[in-house]
């Protein structure tokens, strides 16, 4: 699991690459949550994440709670069909704006 954070026009883009499962979530969770700053709009780019397990859904929920507690907002971009399917099952997609890709998101956010 590779991840990085970039800033565009006051939007924090958090990009994850690789399968997001119990093992990879454990390795990145604390470091990623520490990157969330007060009052930011955060775009989570999942275009390079082929699948999510339930551990990943729990991680996304922690991420969402952290962003909300720091008065920010969160949006999602680049969901593959499998990732979208899993997130819609959990009710996650009802909560967030989703964009087809990062470019579209940055233009519209």
């Amino acid at each position: 699991m590779i991840w990085n954070v970039e800033e565009y026009n006051n939007i924090t883009v958090l990009c994850l690459k690789g399968a997001l499962n119990g093992e990879s979530v454990t390795s990145i969770q604390d470091a990623v949550l520490n990157q969330i700053q007060e009052g930011k709009r955060v775009l989570l780019d999942l275009a390079a994440v082929p699948y999510l397990s339930s551990a990943a859904v729990r991680f996304l929920l922690s991420l969402y709670r952290t962003i909300r507690d720091r008065n920010g907002t969160m949006a999602l971009a680049g969901l593959t069909d499998d990732v979208s399917d899993v997130l819609s099952m959990t009710g996650f997609l009802d909560l967030f704006h989703t964009y087809s890709d990062r470019g579209t998101a940055l233009a519209l956010m």
């Binding site: 397990s53 339930s54 859904v57």
Partner: peptide, 8 residues
């Protein structure tokens, strides 16, 4: 936060 895995 539990219970999703078995649903998947």
């Amino acid at each position: 936060e539990g219970g999703w895995g078995i649903q998947f």
